[in-house]
Design a protein around this nucleic acid. Sequence first.
DNA 1: CTGATGTCTGAATAGCAGTTCAGATGTTAG
DNA 2: CTAACATCTGAACTGCTATTCAGACATCAG
Lengths: 148, 148
Amino acid sequence: MKAAIGNSTAVRANAAGAAQVGTVTPLDVCAVKLVDSDRVDAARAVLPTVDETDRLAEWFRVLGDPTRARLLYALLEVGELCVCDLAATIDTAETTVSHALRWLRTGGMVRARRSGRMMFYSLDDAHVRMLLDLGREHLRHTTPGTPK
Amino acid sequence: MKAAIGNSTAVRANAAGAAQVGTVTPLDVCAVKLVDSDRVDAARAVLPTVDETDRLAEWFRVLGDPTRARLLYALLEVGELCVCDLAATIDTAETTVSHALRWLRTGGMVRARRSGRMMFYSLDDAHVRMLLDLGREHLRHTTPGTPK
DNA sequence: CTGATGTCTGAATAGCAGTTCAGATGTTAG
DNA sequence: CTAACATCTGAACTGCTATTCAGACATCAG
């Protein structure tokens, strides 16, 4: 069973006793109050694990930099480019591009192929393609003057 | 060979529009050399503008934090939760949750509804739902021991 | 071999972002 | 009105990260 997890429902459960209060030894537990404990339990049941959300956040974060995003969108259509061409395409210093490509490489989003002294990079993740397409579609359906 | 200079001039000129090309001061422009200028031009032609990629990167970056990602995944299934329940769900301090929710709010990913003293939050962007689903699917197809 | 080229890496700098703390705002009950 | 409550905000601290610089590594021409 999954019950062994320390931070799982048991800890907060009693505060859920919106119906009955005071019957159970409250002490430290009462620090947190829940409004809709059923819904909280439901959410916790389907929520990815901390390890999974950490990996997901890291995955998204790789796209969360303008340089890296530009590189990915450049590769999305053209297929394969070497470092100096990528630098020219996105108008950025080659060193900066190289650092960014390391992120993308270790993130598994890009694959490198050596040809002579040059390294050719290309997208290496179908999900990333979908992500990029989703992003562009989102742009289209978003008013440029988005309220803040 | 190729019209490397001309091309690289166009390279630098862009960002706003390929207006002035060719006859401008070459001097510093020659610093960059292109390998496949045709492909570079093709990539630049379809590449989103700097403003667009900035917005895209910012959009992705909002998901690139574990706390915010957890909040979104919590809301993805349950639909609506107040701040204290969100804090309990993802086991995080309410202040931290509040700060994270501000990001999601200004990012347009979440909508707030007031009910008495409480604020109920829910997802407010269909594309974000797809993004979250895509992320989970990506997790499934990714070996936990991904090579680096 | 030496030199030139293309790319990568590590250190250093500057700037931003996540958490916590203290207090402010807004809401309801008495 | 005051008190309690739920949430928000700003400031401070810490840590991470994007860029630049200098140099290393790898490859090819001679």
